[in-house]
Amino acid sequence: MSELAPILDGVAAVFLVIGGLMSLAAGVGLLRFPDLHSRMHAATKPQVLGLLMFVLAAALTWRSWELIAIALLTWGVQILTAPVSAHMVGRAGYRSRHVRRDALVVDELARAVDRIAREDTSRPELDEDRPSS
């Protein structure tokens, strides 16, 4: 085990730097991307991959099973909750028209909203909600 220690430390160091680069990428992306949804794309990098890198580095340096379990629990919580919050923020951004339509290649949600507005007359608010084409 003792001859393995420097290798584990080296791998942990690499993981740490990768995680730091992920976080920095998120920061730069937040700063430079033009609209909400592309910023969200950048913001998810440290949420999943960055945190995984840090958790793995911690696990490699601690070398204790119960602490590894706790660290992985952290990552599990994050990976379960991140999609939900991203969904909520993205939907709120779409509905409050923070979408740059000129930057979109395809907008599948607009089709769905159109169809529901046509078929479901019990929800008249969708008529006003329809994105300006």
Binding site: A12, L16, G19, G20, S23, A26, G27, L30, L36, R39, M40, A43, P46, Q47, G50, L51, F54, V55, A57, A58, T61, W62, A71, Q78, S85, V89, A92, G93, S96, H98
Partner: peptide
């Protein structure tokens, strides 16, 4: 420009601070 931009930025801040705590523990 909007609240949602700030929300995701604050989210990232919180996450990076958590990462800092992890790095400090290491």
């Amino acid at each position: 420009p909007s609240v949602l931009d700030r929300v995701i930025a604050v989210d990232v801040t919180l996450l990076v601070v958590s990462s800092m705590l992890l790095v400090d523990m290491i």
